Amino acid sequence: MRASILRCTCLFLIATLLAACAGKDEKADEAETAMSALPVSLATARLQPMARTVLVSGPVTAYEEMQLGVEISGQRVTALPVDVGQWVKKGQVLLQLDHRTLDSELAQADASLRQAQAAQDLARMNYERSAKLAAQQLISASSLDELRANRINAEAQTATARAARDAARLRRDFADLRAPADGLVSKRLVQPGQVVSAGTELLRLIRDGRLEWRAELPENQLADVAVDNTVELPYAGQVVAGRIRAVTPGVDAQTRTGTIYADLPTPGPLKPGIYVEGRIVTGDGQALTIPTAAIVQRDGHNYVFTVNDKQQASRLRVRTGQAVQGRTAILEGLKAGDNVVVEGAGFLGEGDRVRVIAPAKAGDAKAAAR
């Protein structure tokens, strides 16, 4: 009897020890699993005020680029006092042609005009004297008519000589190419010594140095844009501000796009020909936003991770909008109040176990894990 009691007691102690060891193993496994889970922090998707914008790319161009040339042919360039990038004033000489022949023609025209004026003065004085004599009936009426005709003929010859002199002076002025307005020399297509012809482009001038930004918008976005909308062009670490000056009234039948023109009062580092993405602010509104760090790009798509009740990560594909001050608008894939992984999101995969901790601790733990 005593042996039976002793045997039962030993069996009970053995079972107790085995249960205790099993419990310790389970707790150790749970602790090991918890330690192997990636520490992450969560953030909540929330609605916040955000300006409605349209993102589109386009080139920076000159508002008005004038193509300059001369109006006479066969003359050689003798002086070219300007170069590309130089600011010029209205009326400033940009190019000079060889004008020796033109000077000679102008001098000859001046001499012809003075000769005609002398003949006109003589004819006028002869007529005036004859008119006095005719009043006293000392000369015939036919003689007076002839003198009157000589005076009129001399006046016509003077007018002809004056017109020829003006034409010669104009041709002489054509030998000096002057700036039609204030502006910036953007291109030079001629060299000193070159013989040029009329109508050939020799220089280009950006009127007043004024630049604009042009962009092609699809018809669904063009309807949201209006004149005076603000434009923001980030470039070279700066944000250049502009304002829409004009919007095409229709769309192209082939491309189904329309063009917007934005003035750039202070272009800063922007230069003609630069292709830059701009943000057109079309109005105020609200958007569902999450921290930009929560968005993971894989396979050309944007994803976020959420955490389920089993502390496992679930991947969701989202469609994003604009990003402002570290937060990105979510257009599809989430709703307000959803929690997404922020710190540690880039290391996660579908179904990975995670451990949610405070943001600062998550950063420290992630750095330690790396």
Rank of each mutant, 00 (worst) to 15 (best):
S4C: 06
T9A: 15
L11H: 12
I14G: 03
T16E: 11
A19H: 11
A20N: 12
C21E: 15
A28E: 14
T33F: 12
A34L: 10
M35E: 15
A37Q: 08
S41C: 01
A43W: 00
R52F: 03
T53A: 04
V54S: 00
L55Q: 14
G58V: 07
Y63E: 15
E64C: 09
M66F: 09
Q67R: 15
V70H: 01
G74T: 00
Q75I: 07
A79N: 05
L80P: 04
H99R: 13
H99S: 14
T101E: 10
L102M: 08
L102R: 07
S104G: 15
S112V: 06
S112I: 05
A116Y: 02
A119I: 07
D121P: 12
K132V: 07
A135G: 14
D145W: 08
D145Y: 06
N150G: 12
R151F: 05
N153P: 13
A154F: 01
A156C: 07
A161P: 06
A175R: 03
A181N: 12
D182K: 01
G183P: 10
G183A: 09
V185F: 05
V190M: 02
V195M: 01
S197M: 13
R204L: 05
R207D: 13
L211M: 12
W213V: 05
E219F: 10
L222R: 06
A236S: 14
Q238A: 12
G242T: 08
R245I: 05
A246D: 10
V247S: 02
T248V: 08
G250M: 06
D252R: 04
A262K: 00
L264W: 03
P267Q: 08
L270Y: 13
K271H: 09
I274A: 12
Y275D: 14
R279L: 01
R279G: 00
I280S: 00
G283M: 02
G283Q: 00
A294G: 02
R298Y: 11
G300C: 00
N302K: 08
T306F: 07
D309P: 08
R315F: 09
R315Q: 10
L316N: 10
R317G: 03
T320F: 02
Q322W: 05
V324R: 01
Q325Y: 08
G337H: 01
N339P: 09
V342I: 06
A345D: 01
F347T: 12
G351E: 02
R353N: 09
V356G: 03
D364L: 09
A367C: 09
